[in-house]
Amino acid sequence: MYNKISLFVLTALVLVVVGCSETQKVYDNTPLQGSSVKFYVAGMGCPKCANNITLVLDKVDGVDGPKIDMSTGLVTIDFVGDSRPSESDLAIAVKESGFTYKGIKE
């Protein structure tokens, strides 16, 4: 039994070390301008997966009804009210949805 637990803990520790080696890109913290923004997301393997982005972005202040184009990875959001998210807010929301943020469409 103790051997089993040791193996379990050892495997978990190795994976924690491997996982923690990831580095994060830093994005601009200033609020975005305009009435909408388009940005790219990668890794949306299936429609239900992609809908996680809608649910997470809907919780971001100033964001209304994200539209997702899975053929290009382009996500369009309209802004509502006075509050505007920053690019950093969008990148964090995409990461918290489980995907990779690829930047604003120029």
Binding site: L15, V18, G19, A42, G43, M44, G45, M70, S71
Partner: peptide, 11 residues
């Protein structure tokens, strides 16, 4: 612990 998203739906 590892993720490589290499296209709109590719991962």
């Amino acid at each position: 612990f590892y993720q490589d998203d290499f296209g709109p739906v590719d991962t």
